[in-house]
């Protein structure tokens, strides 16, 4: 069974659009079973009521040459969509590490928005929304 880890630089969990997300993955694997390396994915997904939506934005390959190891990664974050939450749906950004021949994954969720805080749709509905510039909800 593979032991996987992923963390962002300085354990930062809030980013602004266009910022670079840096981090590191680490692993302890059986090389006989995990010879195809791994992958780090930058993606977002929805959670709430109804169907789930998942969009992978970018991936990075991870070379696994030893049973124990680590590798850095970085992604330039897109302008949107921003992280948000309301009554019916939340949009959540994450980076995930998976070794190819295993179903196991390790994930870190983070917030992407102009002020580093998840957009609160409840506040928006009540007219308490901050006036963001360049805010995009949607691709």
């Amino acid at each position: 069974m593979a032991e996987l880890g992923i963390k962002t630089e300085l354990d930062n969990l809030a980013y602004t659009p266009g910022e670079t997300l840096r981090g590191e993955v680490n692993w302890k694997v059986d090389l006989m079973k995990n010879s195809d390396g791994g992958e780090v994915r930058l993606f977002y997904y929805t959670s709430g009521k109804g169907d789930r939506d998942v969009e992978t934005v970018e991936t990075r390959g991870v070379q696994i040459h030893s049973e124990l190891g680590s590798q850095g990664f970085e992604f330039q974050l897109p302008n949107g969509p921003c992280s948000f939450s309301g009554k019916l749906v939340s949009l959540i950004w994450a980076v995930e590490f998976q070794v190819m021949e295993s179903d196991e994954t390790e994930r870190v969720e983070f917030v992407l928005s102009p002020d580093g805080k998840e957009v609160d749709l409840y506040a928006h509905a009540e007219g308490k929304m901050p006036s963001y510039t360049n805010l995009r909800i949607g691709k």
Partner: peptide
């Protein structure tokens, strides 16, 4: 108390 969609115990994910 307003429940964020992702925190709803009956969310699609859960």
């Amino acid at each position: 108390m307003k429940t964020r969609a992702c925190d709803n115990p009956f969310s699609n994910e859960r």
